[in-house]
């Protein structure tokens, strides 16, 4: 809230409309650009959480999946707080990751020489 808004509130005048316009536009454009309804977004959120929950224990209530729009690019942002790893499966993932890294290093070495 700006100083102006407070004074306007005291004087019972309408707040400046530019910021209202900006906020309304940003909301409507994020929706226009993604073409996703809130229902679909909710369904997607649930399914993503289910998949992630197979590997790690996450806080189901805290998790948030949202759309963010910046510079004509719409990004899907998932914020999932992890409580605890599920041991066995995590190890499996890590080994897979290590293998991948190794192969990448090899490729890098080849191109260098």
């Amino acid at each position: 809230m700006t100083l102006r808004d407070i004074i306007y509130k005291l004087l019972r005048r309408q707040p400046a409309s530019a910021s209202t316009a900006r906020e309304r536009l940003q909301l409507v454009l994020a929706h226009d650009r993604s073409d996703l309804s809130t229902d679909l977004l909710d369904q997607m959120r649930k399914e993503i959480l289910e998949v992630v929950a197979k590997y790690v224990e996450i806080d189901m209530d805290e998790g948030a999946v949202s759309l963010e729009t910046e510079d004509r690019m719409t990004a899907l942002v998932a914020n999932l707080p992890i409580k605890r790893t599920l041991n066995g499966q995590i190890k499996l993932l890590e080994t897979a990751k290590e293998k991948k890294e190794k192969s990448e290093n090899l490729e890098g070495g080849l191109t260098n020489s």
């Binding site: 409309s17 316009a21 940003q26 454009l29 004509r72």
Partner: peptide, 15 residues
Amino acid sequence: NQEMLSIDDVKDILA
């Protein structure tokens, strides 16, 4: 007077 979308607003929104 902040009663109209500013030039920066429009530029940012439309990128």
